[in-house]
């Protein structure tokens, strides 16, 4: 490939980075709205029902979800240390903490799959099931996308795409991962505690 690759100046990079960062934040806000829509639906249905959960429906098991939550929050911490590594040009730290994040994220998905297969309620069975499976499913899908995202940026990093100064892709992946964490806090509270 003899194509001419344009290398932007630092000022240009900073400007484009600013645009992308803002765009990515806007994306996360609109994603929040999507979760918000279904959370509103959940609260509305819950409010419309005389008893909650609806008769004959059992709440999912708190302790399994609690363990799973710790796994996910742990992955948030490892993600943070991975980025610290990047900022200080410690590639090994970045790689291993990212791998840890990917593993923890996958464990969370495994835990969720276990929970899904051991519940009596179904997606179409009750209003509780409707909200529970829609919201946790949507969240699980986000975690899955996040894992794919992390694997991609990890490979890119190993191939030298990102540098200490220029790594917007990593920033986006981190923001996304923390976002998914925060959403889980809300869902955990709504479905297992509230």
């Amino acid at each position: 490939m003899a194509t001419h690759v344009y290398v932007p100046s630092d000022a240009e990079y900073e400007e484009v980075r600013g645009q992308r960062l803002l765009g990515f934040l806007f994306f996360l806000i609109s994603d929040c709205v999507i979760f918000g829509d279904f959370i509103f639906s959940y609260l509305y249905l819950r409010n419309a029902s005389p008893v909650w959960p609806p008769p004959g429906i059992e709440r999912p098991y708190l302790y399994l979800a609690a363990v799973n939550s710790i796994v996910l929050f742990g992955s948030g911490a490892t993600m943070h240390y991975a980025m610290e590594g990047m900022r200080h040009a410690r590639l090994r730290q970045f790689v291993w903490f990212t791998v840890a994040t990917i593993v923890l994220g996958s464990m969370f998905l495994g835990g969720q799959a276990y929970e899904y297969t051991h519940l009596h309620d179904t997606w179409s069975g009750s209003t509780f099931g409707a909200s529970f499976f829609t919201l946790t499913g949507l969240h699980g899908f986000h975690v899955f996308i996040g894992v794919i995202f992390l694997i991609t940026v990890l490979i890119q990093t190993l191939r030298g795409t990102y540098t200490q100064q220029r790594h917007f892709g990593l920033t986006a992946a981190t923001l996304y991962w923390h976002f998914v964490d925060v959403i889980w806090v809300a869902l955990f509270f709504l479905f297992y505690i509230y």
Partner: peptide
């Protein structure tokens, strides 16, 4: 998938 958000028979609410 017959997810009962709006299905009255399963506790859903059309007004939602």
């Amino acid at each position: 998938f017959h997810v009962p958000f709006y299905d009255v028979a399963k506790g859903g609410a059309p007004v939602l």
